[in-house]
Design a protein around this nucleic acid. Sequence first.
DNA 1: CAAAATATTTGACACGGTGTCAATAACATG
DNA 2: CATGTTATTGACACCGTGTCAAATATTTTG
Lengths: 199, 199
Amino acid sequence: MRPREFDHDEVLRIAFEQFWRKGVRGTSLSDIARDAGVQRGSLYNAFGSKEALFLQAYERYAGDYLAALQKALGTGSLRKRLTAFFDLTITNFRAGTPPRGCPTTRGLMELGAAEGEGLDEDARQAFAGLISRITALVQDTLSAGAKHGEFSGSPAAAALHIVTVTRGLAVLERAFGDEPQLRKVAAHTIDLVLGRKGG
Amino acid sequence: MRPREFDHDEVLRIAFEQFWRKGVRGTSLSDIARDAGVQRGSLYNAFGSKEALFLQAYERYAGDYLAALQKALGTGSLRKRLTAFFDLTITNFRAGTPPRGCPTTRGLMELGAAEGEGLDEDARQAFAGLISRITALVQDTLSAGAKHGEFSGSPAAAALHIVTVTRGLAVLERAFGDEPQLRKVAAHTIDLVLGRKGG
DNA sequence: CAAAATATTTGACACGGTGTCAATAACATG
DNA sequence: CATGTTATTGACACCGTGTCAAATATTTTG
């Protein structure tokens, strides 16, 4: 066996950075190969295809991001937790110069996900999976809040509503790039869900 | 002057249908040319570039869609208006087989909109413009509702929240394709904004 | 230590996409 | 009918994905 001449994880990192910044279709394997100091053919040999490379890079990101969200949702009053959740969400959208947006939302809308066109069902499942897991995390947080009397209502419905808002925020970020606006919507959403003054 | 051999508007219609179904990057001018029975070169001559063709096709759609929304928001109680608004929004996402999603949200996330990459600033403005105009429409509706005592709170904040939810719904549609879920979120949002039983 | 086995790298290739250009064709107008 | 103007057409350059066979560098085996 001839050993690989590049760092598998390092390439994944570099690739994801570019996919995130320029979109999946807007990033060529030549770009990634140049940036990583690897031949294009080696990428095909190691990952199979652009799609497979993206998926691996995305899964890597998704794991890290989910862990960060879990941490943000882990301490303080319910209001504090939700605030930290939205804060991390928005901060993540606005990372980099120029802001790179939400990789999940961008990927999901870019790759079609419909039968026949765009990336495989695999990609859609990866995106949908992260969204589902985020929703579950928020729902658990709300359920716990309900036990402490910090929240009344359906945790499932509220969690889905909150996550829907975060997806909407990802879109607004792309449209207007107005971070204060995003934070206003986040604050308003927390107020609506928790009751104007509650917490 | 030699006259054009194809119908300008017809081509715009055909092009938008394909952009909507397969995404902008996923649609080639060859596809459109074949479908429209026109030579690819003629499209470049008539529209300049793929980007310009998309923009014209999109503006056409945006005008029609905005008019339909305005109509939906035009009659009945505030709750009825908002219900009609969400209904039209979701129905629009789920049009076609397979569902084509929200062209605005898909285009916005697909085309990057960030400096340097993806489509021009022009495209971002077109998408952002439609979102802004929708927000203004909803805001006006809420303001009118406030006069009739059907709504209390900030129309601007509520309108932005509602439109954010619709953008989020566009994303969820792509992720899960679960129309009942979308309608639940919509109903829940109306309840939150108007008060559980109000209207 | 030599040689076989095996995986990686490399460069050439086919194919399809965007966009440009010059040559050609079709009409309007004088 | 001659001329100017615009639309059409086909060839081209360039870049993208993906495939393949040949060359290369290790590890394992004799």
